[in-house]
Structures are given as C-alpha cells and as structure tokens.
C-alpha cells in the first residue's frame, strides 16, 4: 500500500498536496480564530459607534477638507444626533460622571462614605448625594 504514496509533495498536482493532520487542524483553527477575532473587532467598533458616537464626530472633524470628507462629517453628525435622541450616549455620560465624582472626592467625602457603610446607611456617592 505504502509504495503507492509518493512522499514528495511536489509529485502531486497543485492543490492535491498531502498535508499532515496536525497542519490541517492548525489551518482550520486559524481560519476560525481569524473570523472570530475579525467579527469581534467589528462588533466592538459597532458598540463604540452606538454608545460613544461623540468620539466618531470628533475624529471625522479632524479629517482634511474635501467633498468626501464633508459627506463623512455630515453622516457622522447625523448618526450622533440619532444616538443622542435615542438615549444611547447616556451610558457613556453616566460612566464619565461617576469617574468625575470619584476624581473630585475629598477625604471628608471619603470619611462620610466609609461612615455610611459602617452604620449600614444607604451608601452615599462620593459627592454627598444618596445613590439611587
């Protein structure tokens, strides 16, 4: 049986070369992983375009002046307006405000926060307001 198999890959017609199974598995895994990563990256960008459309507008406004660029700017601004109207940008604003609150907190705010936790009272956020 073995003598019928030519071990030289060059002996085969192009496209019919024999490949070890491990190599085929690796190639298969690479194809699947490539697709998985590509879709994930594109989906991630779509999420950013949905929830952080303001950065898209900032970016396109930095593009050079030209008819194509003007159209891109107009489309981006319209997209951002729609996202704002539908409340998609609020998540980013909420996260931004929370970090700003943490950033601006003083040691008195921090003490009050810790005291609140110790006494089992509803925790106040670090600016003094009661968290909902």
């Amino acid at each position: 049986m073995m003598e019928h198999i030519d071990p030289e890959a060059d002996a085969y017609e192009p496209g019919f070369e024999m490949k070890p199974k491990a190599s085929l598995n690796a190639e298969n895994e690479t194809t699947l992983t490539f697709k998985r990563a590509l879709y994930a990256m594109l989906f991630g960008m779509f999420i950013l375009a949905l929830f952080h459309s303001a950065s898209l507008v900032t970016y396109v406004r930095g593009l050079p002046i030209g008819p194509v660029e003007d159209t891109v700017i107009a489309v981006s601004e319209a997209w951002h307006e729609q996202m704002e109207k539908n409340g998609m940008t609020e998540l980013f604003t909420l996260m931004d405000e929370s970090v700003t609150a943490l950033h601006d907190a003083t040691w008195e705010d921090f003490d009050a926060f810790v005291q609140g936790l110790k006494q089992g009272e509803p925790p106040e956020d670090l600016r003094g307001g009661v968290a909902e």
Partner: peptide
Amino acid sequence: APWPVLGLMLGFGILAIEAM
C-alpha cells in the same frame, strides 16, 4: 466565549476606558 461575547467585551471595555 463566542465572538459576540468577545466583541461585547472589547466594545464595552474600550468604552469604559474612554469614559475613565
């Protein structure tokens, strides 16, 4: 994780980093 989960993680991860 399937790609949508990976995408969610990438998207919201970068969103949170941008916000912070």
